Simulated assay, not measured.
Amino acid sequence: MASLQLHLLPLSTGPSSSRFRRSPVRSSTERQSLFNRIAPVYDNLNDLLSLGQHRIWKRMAVSWSGAKKGDRVLDLCCGSGDLAFLLSEKVGSSGKVIGLDFSKEQLSVASSRQKLMSKAFYTNIEWVEGDAIDLPFSDGHFDAITMGYGLRNVVDKHKAMQEMFRVSKAGSRVSILDFNNSTNPVIAFTQELMIDNVVVPVASGFGLAEDYKYLKSSIREFLTGKELEELALDVGFSNARYYEIGGSLMGNLVATR
């Protein structure tokens, strides 16, 4: 069975559409503060808690985005930059990658990683501080969009999806990776068991136990795969398909503009 990853937090705030709402998440200030605080240990914890498997899931998400040489692409909730770096390899030196997040500390870590890496095409990445429900880009600006472990905690998921639809080009794809809120009680139980007995104890070694206890409820309150497909179609995407991966502990929504 796949191990769990710990990406917790969102990008934005705002009133949620009642159709796609679960119970309220933490305030923007609290979430921003947490992401800034955990930034120095974020990557190490992700590797430890997922046994490195998050890197496989992220490659899958990038592949599903359809990004190719010369494309202009966006990674929302970019964190320390994992998906953005993978996208950079896909689009090459003739392409452009925007990594957007609301955490200055995470963006600082991402920028530092970019400077340490020797591959020339990583210079095609620009880091932008911004809000997922109010993207600072024009309509039809991107050839592909990814989002890793962010939508689950965005307060207004409908608005965030609308914004992704707005800034994507006709025929382009959006690929959204996150924990799977499974309707299978065995999978749901396994997730909660691993969070209680693996994630929280490990996080406690970094003084973050209370912060990561929130992970369990955030998954439970997230949309199911079917609901995510319905959300994408509701805002205008022509096609949406949800894939369960990582032993069904994770999921990836692929929506076509």
Rank of each mutant, 00 (worst) to 15 (best):
D71I: 04
S63M: 10
H54Y: 15
D101M: 01
K104M: 13
I56H: 11
D82F: 12
N46E: 10
S112H: 08
V97H: 05
S50P: 06
V97D: 00
A67H: 07
S93A: 14
W64Q: 09
L107E: 09
L87A: 02
R59G: 12
W57V: 14
R55Y: 15
G95P: 01
S80F: 15
D47G: 12
K104P: 13
L74I: 09
L48G: 00
L49W: 02
D43Q: 07
K96W: 08
S65H: 00
K68F: 01
V97M: 01
G99H: 12
A110F: 03
D47N: 15
W57I: 14
C77P: 06
G66H: 13
V62S: 00
L86A: 09
A67S: 06
K58G: 07
D101N: 04
I56N: 11
L86G: 05
L107R: 05
S50T: 09
S88N: 13
K58V: 06
G81L: 11
I98N: 08
G52M: 04
I98E: 07
Q53H: 11
S111P: 06
L49F: 04
S93F: 05
K104R: 13
R59M: 08
S108F: 09
L74Y: 11
D43P: 07
R113V: 14
Q106V: 11
L45S: 01
G52D: 00
S50M: 06
R59H: 08
D43G: 08
L49T: 13
D43H: 05
Q53F: 02
E105M: 11
A84C: 13
K96G: 04
S50C: 09
S63H: 12
R59T: 08
L74G: 08
V73H: 08
R72T: 15
K90N: 03
A67M: 07
L87V: 03
H54E: 13
I98V: 14
G81A: 11
L86N: 04
L86M: 07
W64M: 09
S65N: 05
D71F: 14
M60I: 00
L83W: 09
K90M: 08
S103N: 04
L100R: 10
